[in-house]
């Protein structure tokens, strides 16, 4: 039997995991030395309370998970004679995957007959959730592990994620966005536009003054890059700015069809630690990223 895994950096909640039968690996963040594992240390994510703490000036840290943690998730599955398919967030953004490789190598020696499949979504947040849901659907349709990996990996290059930053202190602290050199800490309404490239890394590709212009920038990218977007998943992520997200959703419906489904997702706290509050992200099917 094939057992599905994903992680909380993919904006997957226990409820979504349950829909497809995913096991959920919790990716930690820490505030003032106190480490929290999402959905392990709390049941429901109170995004408003979390981002309010960040608004007060706190910048959380995040850390990679160790090989021991991966062993604790994976070994029972292999021991029970099952295989694993892990749909995870961008390998290029975390040292966690070195730990994963180590854990898997160890387990393969111990359980040589077992298979470990992985799909690098080369994204974070809703960029991953797109593929997590796709893989879940393919799994439910009875597709084999190899076929799922092949289909999903092809799709990964067509999943575009564009978002804007509100307060650069978080991204600067994170150090994971390139191209921010010319943009300084005090933003004063200036919003860098960031996307995730084919290599799974965040790159700043411009800036806009004001939220309205920043949103327009995201929407116009959806118009020019989008490939039959209405026939695919469309996801909107926000870091505690639901009103703004609702505006974006309304605008997408005006431009792409009033009845289309759009999934609204609060960004998980670990990825949110790198973004800070008041960011909006847009994920859609595209000719390329």
């Amino acid at each position: 039997m094939l057992v599905l895994f994903t992680d909380t950096d993919c904006d997957v909640t226990p409820k979504i995991a349950e829909e497809y039968g995913y096991n959920l690996i919790s990716m930690p963040y820490s505030i003032e030395g106190k480490t929290t594992y999402p959905y392990v240390d709390f049941k429901k994510f109170d995004d408003h309370a979390f981002y309010d703490v960040l608004r007060s000036g706190t910048i959380p840290n995040t850390s990679a998970v160790s090989s021991e943690v991966y062993l604790s998730y994976f070994e029972p599955v292999f021991a029970a004679g099952n295989d694993i398919l892990y749909v995870h967030f961008s390998r290029a953004m975390s040292a966690s995957f070195d730990a994963m490789d180590q854990a898997v190598a160890e387990l393969k020696e111990k359980y040589p007959a077992r298979e470990f499949y992985s799909i690098d979504t080369k994204h974070i947040s809703i960029g991953c959730l797109y593929t997590v849901r796709l893989v879940g659907d393919l799994y439910k349709s009875g597709m084999s592990a190899r076929e799922i990996v092949e289909t999903a990996t092809k799709e990964v290059d067509h999943v575009a994620l564009y978002f804007f930053a509100d307060d650069l202190r978080f991204f600067k602290h994170s150090g994971r966005v390139s191209g921010l050199a010319g943009i300084m800490g005090t933003l004063l309404g200036i919003r860098p536009i960031i996307y995730i490239g084919d290599d799974g890394k965040m790159v700043s590709i411009g800036k806009e003054k004001g939220r309205k212009k920043a949103i327009e920038n995201l929407l116009s990218r959806m118009e020019t890059l989008g490939d039959s977007v209405a026939d695919h998943r469309i996801l909107v992520a926000h870091t505690d700015c639901p009103d703004l997200a609702a505006e974006v959703i309304a605008e997408i419906r005006t431009r792409f069809g009033k009845d289309i489904d759009i999934e609204l997702s609060p960004v998980n706290p670990t990825i949110g630690s790198h973004c800070g509050p008041n960011c909006i992200g847009l994920c859609f099917h595209a000719t390329h990223r």
Partner: peptide, 11 residues
């Protein structure tokens, strides 16, 4: 001054 400097593209 703010309007101009904040959009300045040094590239």
């Amino acid at each position: 001054g703010y309007a101009a400097i904040s959009i300045m593209d040094t590239e």
